[in-house]
Design a protein around this nucleic acid. Structure first.
Lengths: 231, 231
DNA sequence: GTCTATACATGGATAGAC
DNA sequence: GTCTATCCATGTATAGAC
């Protein structure tokens, strides 16, 4: 079930190039046609659906093709391998997540409120579709195992951290970037942990309480880190 | 690759029975012989090794048999299915983890110190072998996908929460159990999140700093929750 | 660029000798 | 209780018609 030795298409771009990430283009074709682009996207979307149903361990190219309403051969025309397709999905997921966060946290008054909104937003996004969260974790772990794709896991992390940094930065302009970064890390760690708990032992009421607790704890941490402006 | 319809051996015991968990015994045999027990354990240990190498997606019964130095037929004599074996590993892992935590947190002076020790211990355990941590997450997620095994993921969570409760309880005897529970949840969530970060974007120095930050935040949370005794 | 058909490998599981 | 040999389903990927 492996063809790792020459998993080209995953190593082609070892560093984040531009921002339309995950473009493991079809062999020797950079400027893909209008329709091809649509099919690519249908494939990615179909893979996501199939992953929600089956998980990374259960996924097969046939199921993907079926969900995407595309034939098996077509899949392999657009993606060098199943792995390449899976990684493209991970990339899409990460971008989508960071985007959602940015949209959700506009206009806070002060840092405390900002922390609160960020965490509430993080949680809402996760709660809205826990199935996708599972997929995200599965794919991230899978990337760690896949030759030449570990950097994708790191980028997932970097991007999401950055989205948090940006949210906080506006309300702690005097503070050193490093302190902000530490807050972002703690916030993200906390939310990830709560999501994991919700997945393993579902109990929405408990998790929402945990988010409240986390908010309080992070506000306290921000103080410890000296992020609050004097009033 | 699936035979879910009748994954007996996983549904036999839907509730935690006794404490020698994960005993999906060989068909119609409760009192297994001395040697059989050894082989079972070799198989579990071998599976763990194989999982560290390959991950859940890459694992095969053949690789397991090889690592355990056992023949393929023997594997299926002891375990009804690959899934049953995998779940037995998850159980072992969980028990081992809780055990390690208990050993590591003896004799703190007060709650603040206890929180510190618990988190330091949690982290040391994880840092000592990150490879196993990955496996633990993979297996927990896998359990969620496996028909009739989702309860195993929940038990993982319950057991580890309980280990934390026990550690804290001694230093907050007056406090309501619910407040202690909330602290445990927050602590675990935070650590899990940090481990996840370390896996996705390895940087031990950063993670150790994150643990320090988490300690401070959790001590603050304990205060918010009214867990500290008046001095 | 998309489809059909198929090659080829690999996996889980079992039968039956020992 | 362990081993060998094998069945048979399923998977990824490709070849080549359209």
């Amino acid at each position: 079930m492996r063809r790792e030795q020459e998993s080209r298409g995953l190593t082609t771009s070892d560093a984040p190039e531009a921002d339309d990430a995950g473009q493991e283009a079809a062999p020797a074709r950079r400027r893909a046609g209008r329709k091809a682009r649509e099919t690519r996207e249908r494939l990615i979307e179909g893979t996501l659906l199939a992953l929600c149903d089956e998980g990374v361990t259960g996924i097969t190219t046939r199921k993907i093709a079926e969900k995407a309403d595309v034939h098996l051969g077509t899949l392999h025309y657009h993606f060098e391998s199943k792995d390449a397709l899976l990684m493209a999905v991970l990339d899409t997921l990460g971008a989508r997540l960071a985007q959602q966060l940015r949209l959700g946290v506009a206009g806070s008054r002060d840092l405390d409120e900002c922390i609160e909104r960020v965490l509430e937003t993080d949680w809402i996004i996760a709660e809205r579709n826990l199935a996708i969260q599972i997929v995200q974790y599965e794919l991230t772990l899978y990337a760690l195992r896949t030759e030449g794709a570990a950097w994708m896991a790191r980028r997932q992390y970097d991007d999401y951290i950055k989205a948090h940094d940006d949210a906080f930065a506006g309300h702690a302009s005097g503070a050193p970037a490093e302190a902000i970064r530490r807050l972002s890390q703690a916030v993200m760690a906390g939310i990830d942990g709560i999501i994991l708990q919700e997945l393993a032992a579902p109990d929405l009421a408990r998790s929402r309480g945990a988010v409240r607790d986390l908010i309080a704890a992070m506000q306290a941490l921000a103080r410890t880190l000296g992020l609050h402006r004097p009033r």
